[in-house]
Design a protein around this nucleic acid. Structure first.
Lengths: 365, 365
DNA sequence: CAGACTCCCGGAAACGTTTACAGCTATCGG
DNA sequence: CCGATAGCTGTAAACGTTTCCGGGAGTCTG
């Protein structure tokens, strides 16, 4: 029997050639048996035996090169420490798993170059598709998205002309829901703790806050606005700065992490929540329910956005010729103890539970 | 010019053949230029031009098949919603990134089959190495670990004979630190809210708790022990059950998520923390500092374990012949407001900050 | 000016798998 | 008893890249 190539690679790991040689059959037969397609009983026995003896395990890279698919899907988010991305990830994971694929997550740490590098690297066929949720978007970035070799779906705001599938929400309206609720329950000195203004969500929420106040005919006192990043520590520090110079009766926070920081700062400063200051967070993550008192929060439908993004991606992977699609998930407010109505003359419905009973499940607006 | 193969694959994406043909050079030259090694100025120009014109992007899978490496490292954890894994991930990420590789995370959801499947799939060369932190370990699992085609490092308890690199802590001693502290500050009816007893950390912490109490000559009242899973909701529910039947003056919790649940249940039941009940968490995550009052917590050095695991992995990837190594990171206790000494006659040092000043940074034991 | 050396290039093999194709044997139907 | 057919097998090509090797052209040295 003339062997045309090395049976055992330097690596030492067996290949299909090793198995075939040992079983005394061709690599084609070996491959067929190993894939469970075809083969006579005798061949099957021999190949199985040989494979077991040498401890054969197929090389997925080689298989992928041949089949042009890896069965892997990637999700890139900036901060995996933010529970909102965890919820999104879980929703995506469910869809992805049900399609028989596996999900891999990468945290970009908000470093834009990192995210672009990831796109260029992973998307070069290591994964069959990708979902990214950027908070900053540059042109370079957008280019990388558009001519990615594999399908990409974006979760977040993106221009209609971007030519990329995307699922977004309306966080301006989300902020408006919070403001409306606070105004309706008698609050007037409403503060706002936002994330960075060089991020897409940051500017949207800022605009939403200003518009909502104006809509109620309330003049905005700039002292009531603070900016940090989207983290707990920044939210706490920003709130401390804000409290040092003025006296709000409510705080709208640009996400739940910030809201938790604000709550901490308020309680540490001796303010009662919600009696003295009402707090409303955003994203409606598990964290909001974990606090005491539980935090009211505006849901931006992250799980739903994740689910839809995953579905869009699977569809596009099945048919690359689909036109770019945009979907939108509406925000909704869940009122909990941190903003239950304490001030005189709450005109709206939603009487809310007594603030001393924080285990209430909240009232969705 | 005789073209021997299809220049444009059905896929439509350009390959190095496309570029070479367009530039009028061989694929060898094209490849060299694209990798920045060799080539005359003229050739370089032509190839670069051709590549840009057709929008060439290299196929990483094919490259990996040739080079036998992907530059990717995977981390598998059970619950990415638990901040302890986020911290571990950040530490790992830092090491991995500094080696020029990229980290991918996979959440197994604690489903053991899922984790094994991941091992068998990813480890088949999609990644160059893998760090896993399982909470349940079966024989099947262990087998998959041991004869994985790529290096694997385990974060967590593993028998010395397992033959796999691993980094672990001593969570029995961790629980002991918490109990010692509580006893030293005058607590006697110390409760314990644990995770499932079919997990490795679950049994270790249970054993640690019993041993520590015995060490202080305190008889264990079984009514003071509750079990749930390692999540917030379970911690809260377990604490509610516990409070319904008995009356602890302190609670040790098997992780921070449980501790947060316990804190919520205590406050909702009208107990003062720490005056009526002291609370100590475990893992010392960011969450502990976010609470009000801030939670005392036993650090199990997750960041450090992550860092070391990553280093072990990189070493093994460089030299597969290394003998299996085991490293251990000691636990340490950080005392914060939730267990500051309120009961009479605290014999130990660590006077602790007044409980009304929760922004203290804590005292490390 | 001859020989040695450098540089660049193209052909071809290799990475490990799947699969189209053709040939062979054995069985079946007429 | 012979031709068709079904099932199995092996050869070889293909996936897209990198890289070894030999040859040719140009440059430098003596």
């Amino acid at each position: 029997m003339g062997r045309k190539r090395l049976q055992e690679p330097a690596d030492g790991r067996p290949t299909v050639h090793t198995v075939a040689a040992r079983a005394g059959v061709s690599i084609a037969s070996a491959s067929r048996v190993l894939n469970g397609v075809g083969g006579s009983p005798e061949t099957i026995r021999k190949v199985r035996e040989a494979a077991a003896e040498v401890g054969y395990v197929p090389n997925a890279i080689a298989r992928s090169l041949q089949s042009q698919r890896t069965g892997l899907i990637a999700l890139a988010v900036e901060d995996i420490g933010n529970p909102v991305y965890v919820e999104m990830m879980r929703a995506i994971e469910a869809v992805v798993a049900s399609s028989g694929r596996q999900l891999l997550v990468h945290a970009t740490g908000g470093r834009i170059d990192n995210e672009t590098a990831l796109l260029r690297r992973l998307a070069n066929r290591y994964v069959d598709g990708m979902i990214v949720s950027p908070i900053r978007i540059t042109d370079d970035h957008l280019t990388a998205l558009v001519d990615s070799p594999v399908p990409v779906v974006v979760v977040g705001q993106l221009g209609a002309d971007a030519g990329v599938d995307n699922v977004r929400t309306d966080s301006r309206q989300g902020v408006a829901l919070a403001v409306d609720h606070l105004v309706a329950t008698g609050r007037r000195r409403i503060g706002f703790v936002n994330g960075p203004l060089d991020t897409v969500p940051g500017v949207a929420r800022d605009a939403g806050f200003r518009a909502a106040l104006a809509g109620h005919g309330i003049a905005l006192d700039e002292e009531l606005v603070e900016v940090g990043d989207f983290q707990y520590a920044a939210g706490r520090a920003a709130t401390e700065r804000l409290l040092a110079r003025t006296d709000p009766d409510a705080l709208v926070c640009a996400n739940d992490l910030i809201a938790v920081g604000a709550l901490h700062a308020l309680l540490a400063a001796g303010r009662r929540v919600p009696q003295d200051v009402a707090v409303v967070g955003m994203d409606d993550t598990e964290l909001a329910r974990m606090m005491f008192p539980q935090l009211s929060s505006v849901s931006l439908g992250s799980a739903e956005r994740g689910r839809r993004a995953a579905e869009l991606l699977l569809q596009r992977m099945a048919d690359a010729t689909l036109p770019p699609r945009r979907e939108q998930v509406p925000p909704s407010l869940t009122v909990r103890a941190s903003s239950a109505a304490p001030l005189p003359a709450p005109r709206s419905a939603a009487p809310g539970p007594p603030t001393t009973h924080p285990s209430s499940e909240g009232v969705t607006a």
